[in-house]
Amino acid sequence: MPYEVQGVVTRAKGEPVTLETVLVPDPGPGEVVVDVQACGVCHTDLHYREGGIGDDFPYLLGHEAAGVVSALGEGVTNVAEGDFVVLNWRAVCGQCRACRRGRPWYCFATHNASQPMTLADGTPLSNALGIGAFQAKTLVHSGQCTKVDPEAPATAAGLLGCGVMAGFGAAVNTGAVTRGDSVAVIGCGGVGAAAVAGAALAGATTVIAVDLDPAKLELARGFGATHTVDPADGDVVEAVQALTGGFGADVVIDAVGRPETYRQAFYARDLAGTVVLVGVPTPEMTLELPLLDVFGRGGSLKSSWYGDCLPDRDFPMLVDLYRQGRFDLDAFVTETIGLGDVEQAFARMKDGGVLRSVVVI
């Protein structure tokens, strides 16, 4: 018999989300049901609501979640009932050309549950990033579950499921920040703040946080930023160069994902430096750069997919760092809210000043 829960659904582009009855089927082969304990409100959920990712409405929102496995389908061996898990949206297949080349973080055939969750009238739902976790139970592929230390609270651990991992990984995995590097992070929301924290943990000696919001700049200092830049005070490129001996940063991370911030990142890096794009653009955005500058400046222009992470490797490691007091996941939680407060959380996200609203179920 399917489980009946209340889930946060967006039925059409730009419409406010609603609480709807959702039917969650019993798990089939390779699937599990997870009792969701907490789920962060990520900007990607807002992208779904506004039609910035696709038009497969209705969408079941929520993906940055942690909870407990409550039911197993046939053949599941990587988790057991009662395991505390963080959900991930890139469950690697192990068989595609990226996996076979030893680069599973680029997996081109990631797993999701085969069965759809539906509205009460049988309408299939499209799950945000293949998860759909703004509800008390959700159905996912077992590979989307990463077991972590249950001593970590779900409000903190769940944030590893998307934004925190994306930002941390953009610095450590994609940007390969190492001891003595200089790093600039443009945009210091949840993802950017995590990139600042990752750069600091990796040993960067100069970590420059760039944001228009003074509150976010102050939070960035708490995560390890050594300097802050407010674009309202002057040219960002010049400011970053002034803080790096006139050269520019070794690694510049664009956590906004707009043409203007990418241009800033491109020119704020040192010669042969690295640009990492982790902020998600919308489909209509385009970028124009002089090709001679692309050639002449050298270095690397990279996109970071989910922080180029391997959940089974990176989630437990970050939870261990959290429990050791070296990575303050709690500092990302601006507020805890209920399922009925997601639309208001979207509004606060647009107003700024919020790293993460976290739905507690």
Rank of each mutant, 00 (worst) to 15 (best):
3 Y>G: 07
12 A>P: 07
13 K>G: 05
17 V>R: 03
19 L>C: 10
25 P>C: 06
29 P>Q: 10
34 V>P: 06
34 V>Y: 06
37 Q>E: 14
37 Q>L: 13
38 A>S: 09
38 A>T: 11
43 H>N: 02
48 Y>L: 00
49 R>E: 04
53 I>K: 01
54 G>P: 06
66 A>N: 05
66 A>M: 01
71 A>L: 06
74 E>P: 08
85 V>I: 06
87 L>Y: 02
109 A>F: 06
110 T>V: 15
112 N>V: 15
112 N>P: 00
117 M>I: 12
125 L>K: 04
132 G>W: 00
138 T>M: 06
153 P>Q: 06
154 A>L: 06
163 G>H: 10
165 M>K: 00
168 F>C: 03
172 V>I: 11
176 A>Q: 15
178 T>F: 05
183 V>Y: 10
196 V>R: 00
197 A>W: 01
200 A>N: 11
201 L>E: 10
203 G>K: 03
204 A>P: 05
204 A>I: 09
205 T>Q: 14
206 T>P: 10
209 A>W: 03
214 P>S: 13
224 G>S: 08
225 A>C: 02
229 V>S: 11
230 D>G: 03
233 D>F: 11
233 D>I: 09
235 D>S: 14
237 V>Y: 08
245 G>W: 07
251 V>S: 07
255 A>T: 11
260 E>F: 08
264 Q>W: 08
265 A>M: 09
266 F>E: 02
266 F>W: 12
266 F>D: 04
268 A>W: 02
272 A>Y: 14
275 V>H: 04
276 V>M: 07
279 G>E: 03
279 G>T: 00
285 M>V: 07
289 L>F: 08
289 L>R: 05
298 G>D: 06
299 G>I: 06
313 R>F: 08
323 R>N: 13
325 G>N: 12
332 F>P: 10
332 F>C: 02
337 I>Q: 05
340 G>F: 09
345 A>L: 13
349 M>A: 15
